[in-house]
Design a protein around this nucleic acid. Structure first.
Length: 430
RNA sequence: GUGAUUGUAGCUCAGUUGGUUAGAGCGCCAGGUUGUGGCCCUGGAGGCCGGGGGUUCGAGUCCCCUCAUUCACCCCA
């Protein structure tokens, strides 16, 4: 145990895992761009008020989970971003993006910070990728965002994910529903737990989210938000569902799904993975037209978005064995020299192979052949290239396929050609 | 923030009513094979038993404190 260790709720990502991150990020970049989304990178900290206004002061995130600090006595309070959407919207409003063009499709990958007690699938520093589609109020916008998210999952090979969806209606719908809920729950005030009692006043919708077993029966009997939606909201929701069905995206309507953040309206959705344990939400999102107004824009800005938790995605993929091929990737060739005098020549060859675009590894510690071979095996090199005295004097090299143990002796040009062949094939395939 | 859980080798874990130099498997290194990996055999390195205090002739083992881990609640990605 070393003296210093990573801060609670943070972790190191070592090379093998980093390769997995890169792979996922690559898929995200490719698909986002395929759908016409462009990357945005916003600061990891913002003025604290941004999150207080944007996310909502009644939420747990703002209430008790933010890493907030004061840079100096005069400075304004700052907070490490606990979610992405507020920052993206701030950036859009600040630079008047929507005056330059009516529609903006943005995506991001970045780190977030929440001061929660760590547990499976939950850390204090974590990462999300997501997309925000600004300026379009049509149900096609939410559908587009959901479709992109689901295609990322599909491309990564995930299966068994569950998409749940609901409509939260517009502001007036929710106001009426809120009253109905309060009227329903108030007689049962004594049965409610502390948290729910508080929510009864501040945000009764979130009582529906409670996992408290003692309340499940009561919650099941509560009035449905869906029944309080006006005509327009219903039509909007139906249209979203229509798009999903048309695209063969399986969903399940969950009338009790409400999202934690205050800014959602109309469509809200969540994707869960059964591989995750208690924290089973792998992604979620919805429509948040009111956020811009909250942030001081004169009016609402129609907006739809989703966010996916990278760590939870990684866990799910690992459990489903989706990294097997990636993990098996090693260098193309490992150079093995017979004796120390040939080490420099080996290094020369390594340089030449690398310049030719061949992933090449070589022992820098002048170890025995056996040690070199073990290393080649350990790092899963495809081939070993032997340089011995006999070959050296003849200008030849022995190339051994480490999977089949076949070995041939040939000049360097032929070696390069042979090693390059499978790499080219791979490129054609991808 | 609340509850529970676990801290012994790089990893996964044994360690008997407290009793000598603390063990295994895997991994690592080396040898068997001085020009060849994976399998097998042999050997080796590597532990202030999370930290501090206490009880005791004696503590990995018992008690207290502390730090950390993990899981769950809460909530969320």
């Amino acid at each position: 145990m070393s003296q210093y260790q990573a801060v609670k709720g943070t972790r190191d990502i070592f090379p093998e895992e980093a390769a997995r991150w890169k792979y996922i990020e690559g898929v995200v970049h490719t698909l986002a761009s395929l759908y016409g989304f462009s990357e945005i990178r916003t600061p990891v900290f913002e003025y604290t008020e941004l999150f207080q206004r944007g996310i909502g002061s009644t939420t747990d995130i703002v209430g008790k989970e933010m890493f907030t600090f004061q840079p100096d006595v005069k400075g304004r309070s700052l907070t490490l971003r606990p979610e992405m959407t507020a920052g993206v919207m701030r950036a859009a409003l600040q630079s008047n993006l929507l005056s330059s063009a009516p529609v903006h499709k943005l995506y991001y990958i970045g780190e977030l910070f929440r001061k929660e007690r760590p547990q499976a699938g939950r850390q204090r520093q974590f990462s999300q990728f997501g997309a925000e589609l600004l300026g379009v109020s049509s149900p096609a916008a939410v559908a587009e965002v959901i479709t992109l998210m689901m295609q990322v999952f599909e491309s990564l090979g995930l299966h068994g994910l569950k998409l749940r969806i609901n409509s939260l209606g517009d502001t007036e719908d929710r106001l009426r529903y809120r009253e109905a809920l309060q009227a329903y729950f108030t007689p049962f005030h004594d049965i409610l737990d502390e948290a729910s009692k508080e929510r009864l006043e501040k945000n009764p919708l979130r009582i529906l989210d409670s996992k408290n077993p003692a309340l499940q029966e009561l919650i099941a009997g509560a009035p449905r938000l869906y029944d309080y939606l006006n005509e327009v909201s219903v039509q909007d929701f139906e249209k979203v569902l229509f798009y999903l069905a048309e695209r063969n995206i399986a969903y399940e309507i969950d009338y009790r799904l409400v999202r934690g953040l205050d800014y959602y309206c109309n469509t809200a959705f969540e994707v869960t993975s059964s591989e995750l344990g208690a924290q089973d939400a792998i992604g979620g999102g919805g429509r948040y037209d009111g956020l811009a107004r909250e942030l001081g824009s004169g009016s609402d800005v129609p907006a739809s978005g989703f966010a996916v938790g990278m760590e939870r995605l990684l866990i799910t993929m690992e459990k489903q064995g989706l990294f097997a091929a990636l993990d098996a990737q090693g260098p193309d060739v490992y150079i093995v020299v017979q004796q120390v005098d040939l080490a420099d020549h080996g290094l020369q060859i390594a340089c030449r192979l690398r310049k030719a675009g061949i992933k090449t590894e070589i022992d820098l510690a002048a170890r025995s052949m056996k040690a070199q071979m073990r290393e080649a095996n350990r790092i899963k090199a495809s081939y070993a290239l032997f340089i011995g005295m006999a070959e050296y004097s003849a200008g030849l090299y022995s190339l051994k396929n480490l999977a089949t143990s076949e070995q041939t002796t040939l000049p360097l040009d032929a070696v390069v050609q042979l090693l390059l062949a499978p790499a080219e094939k791979e490129q054609l395939n991808s």
